[in-house]
C-alpha cells in the first residue's frame, strides 16, 4: 500500500529524511519511531503530498507522489491526523466533520451516518454541537481522528495521536486504531511511545534521518542479540555459585535470591544451569527467560546513529 524508495527531503543544507526505503502492506499498522527531529513528520508530509520530495520515489495505493495527477488520487484515498490537530475552533464538532465529508462528495445520508458513527465510537456524540475550540486536548485529538476517517480512506496517517493524552484517552485511541485495523485499513503511525508501538503495530520502523531498521516488534527484539535467564531460588549460597561458575555462563550475576545470566539459546543452555543448581542443593522456584525490550533496541539504534 505504501512503498518508498530512497525517499529524501532536504531543507536547504539540512537533510531531514535521507534515503528511506520502506514498505507497508495492505491492512498493516506501521509504527514509525524516532527521536525529535528525526524526520517522521516530514516523511508523513511527503507521503500525503503536502511537501515535495527532494529525490527518491514513493507510491501510495500504486499512485506516485510528486506529480499532480498522482497527488490528487492519493489525497482521495488517505486521511491525515497532523501533529497539531488543526480543527476549526469556531465551528462545532459536527460542522468540522460535515465540511470534510462534503469535500469528498459523500451523499448526505452517508455523511450523516458516518459522522454519527464516529462521534459515537469516540464518545463525542453528546458534544456534537459544542464549538471545537471548547474541547479538551484529548477530545480534539479524537475529533481530528474522526475527521480523517469521514471519507472512509484506505490509508490513515497519524502523527503522534496519543501525545498529550491521559492514559485512559490514549487507551481509547489505541483501541480505536485496533478497531480500524480490523476494518483492514492501512495505518501509518508516528509515535514516541514504544509500548504503544509494540502493542498495536504489525511492523515498526526506527528513523533517525536515515531508516535504521524495520521489522515486526519481535524481529526487532531479536535484533539486539542475547536473552537473559533469571532463576529465582529459595536460597543462594556459595556452593551453588561456584557450581555455576564452572559452566562459564556469560554475565553471571547474583542479587538476593536471584541469579541472572545471558543465554543465546535458552532451550539448550538453561537445562544445564538448572541441573547444576539442583545438584548443588539449590531449591529452584522459577526460571524465566526475558528478551531485550523494544526500548533496548530503540536506544541502541538511535545512539549508534547519533
Amino acid at each position: 500500500m505504501i512503498e518508498t524508495e530512497n525517499l529524501t527531503k532536504k531543507f536547504g543544507n539540512l537533510t531531514a529524511v535521507d534515503n528511506v526505503t520502506l514498505r507497508v502492506n495492505d491492512g498493516e499498522v506501521f509504527g514509525f519511531l524516532g527521536p525529535n527531529g528525526a524526520g517522521k513528520t516530514t516523511t508523513i508530509r511527503m507521503l500525503c503530498c503536502l511537501i515535495s520530495k527532494t529525490s527518491g520515489s514513493a507510491t501510495i495505493g500504486g499512485y506516485e507522489i510528486g506529480n499532480k495527477e498522482g497527488s490528487l488520487k492519493i489525497r482521495k484515498i488517505i486521511g491525515l491526523v497532523p501533529d497539531n490537530v488543526g480543527l476549526s475552533e469556531h465551528l462545532t464538532a459536527y460542522d468540522n466533520l460535515d465540511f470534510y465529508g462534503k469535500i469528498y462528495d459523500s451523499s448526505d445520508a452517508q455523511r450523516k451516518e458516518s459522522i454519527k458513527r464516529f462521534l459515537e465510537m469516540l464518545g463525542l456524540w453528546e458534544k456534537r454541537n459544542a464549538l471545537a475550540g471548547t474541547f479538551s486536548k484529548g477530545m480534539k485529538q479524537k475529533l481530528a481522528i474522526a475527521r480523517a476517517l469521514i471519507h472512509d480512506p484506505q490509508v490513515l496517517f497519524l502523527d503522534e495521536p496519543t501525545a498529550n493524552l491521559d492514559p485512559e484517552s490514549a487507551k481509547t485511541v489505541r483501541e480505536f486504531i485496533l478497531e480500524l485495523k480490523k476494518e483492514k485499513k492501512t495505518i501509518f503511525l508516528n509515535t514516541h511511545n514504544l509500548d504503544e508501538a509494540q502493542r498495536i503495530c504489525d511492523k515498526i520502523g526506527i528513523l533517525n534521518t536515515t531508516l535504521r531498521v524495520t521489522g515486526t516488534p519481535q524481529d526487532l527484539e531479536q535484533e539486539v542479540k542475547g536473552k537473559k535467564t533469571i532463576v529465582s531460588l529459595e536460597q543462594v549460597n556459595e556452593k551453588i555459585l561456584s557450581a555455576l561458575k564452572k559452566l562459564s555462563l556469560k554475565n553471571l550475576t547474583n542479587e538476593g535470591n536471584k541469579i541472572t545470566f545471558d543465554v543465546s539459546d535458552p532451550d539448550k543452555e538453561n537445562w544445564g544451569a538448572v541441573e547444576a543448581m539442583v545438584l548443588a542443593g539449590g531449591h529452584v522456584n522459577t526460571v524465566n527467560v526475558v528478551g531485550s525490550s523494544l526500548e533496548d533496541v530503540y536506544l541502541k539504534l538511535v545512539r549508534e546513529s547519533a
Partner: peptide, 10 residues
C-alpha cells in the same frame, strides 16, 4: 493550523 489537514484533501 487548520490549513494542513485541508491541504491533505483533494
Amino acid at each position: 493550523k487548520s490549513l494542513e489537514p485541508l491541504l491533505a484533501t483533494p
